[in-house]
Nucleic acid binder design. Sequence first.
DNA 1: CATGATAACGCAACTCAGTTGCATTTGTCA
DNA 2: TGACAAATGCAACTGAGTTGCGTTATCATG
Lengths: 145, 145
Amino acid sequence: MKQYTEEIMDILKANNLRMTKTRMALMMMFLKSEEPLSVSEMLEALSSMKRGVNKTTVYRELEQLQLKGIISTVQLGDRKQYYELASRDHHHHLICLECKQIEDIDMNEEKLLAEEKKMSRKKGFVILRHSLEFFGLCKQCQCQE
Amino acid sequence: MKQYTEEIMDILKANNLRMTKTRMALMMMFLKSEEPLSVSEMLEALSSMKRGVNKTTVYRELEQLQLKGIISTVQLGDRKQYYELASRDHHHHLICLECKQIEDIDMNEEKLLAEEKKMSRKKGFVILRHSLEFFGLCKQCQCQE
DNA sequence: CATGATAACGCAACTCAGTTGCATTTGTCA
DNA sequence: TGACAAATGCAACTGAGTTGCGTTATCATG
């Protein structure tokens, strides 16, 4: 907890961001969370704070953090945005369609990047990023079918 | 035009779907379109029809067609669903972040499927589908930067 | 061709994620 | 400590998608 706080303060200072309670709380959530977070989850968690936090504030905060490159967004097939620390290495997700559990996966992307280059050349596109997500059923949810 | 109409009637008959003007118009759009379509695009196009078409109808129609396996959905990074004919072979998209142009790409997926199997074994997940989209700048939009 | 079952439709009112304008509060630095 | 920009709250909005319910149109059957 203590070491998190210092880590966060360093990050914020380095990015010229003021230290506010919302910001601290959000950063804490991102550092602790194993999964990408949705705004509704954040609001839920923040609602326990004294006087709560307005959703506008959260959206604006996320925009800031994204602009500074501290967090990045992921689309996971439903209609919301999810957010996670950008400092994590590039990776993809395994999403259980039943229980919505999300797992990070790191796979060998050489072949994918090679394909990317080939396409890029052929089509004249500059490819800036890709999004690759896998959907299925986790071990538990398979058994309950 | 004529051959499209017959093709559509065959598809509908084969799927036990009544032949209505909305349905015909939507199928026509799907057959003609090079790109996945959003509901707003469909409504725009359908609004020129006599008496227009209600959005509820379009949503319900899309659900039907999806249920019958005639169309399928794609997520392209914004907050909407896009739809395209399911009969097209499995493929991915190249999306221009500037002009929103969408191109189909077909790439060799052997390696990807191999990775999928490996992950599946390791994590105990059954993988049912994946989503892979590339984002960047098309030839024209690169020059205008 | 008439007709009845039911699929398809329109409308109004809703949900839910995200946005905007504007007035107020708070963090930081001199 | 005070000034000023950054951060916040609130209310009202947008845009995608949904729901309930009453009406209309398609089509198999006679």
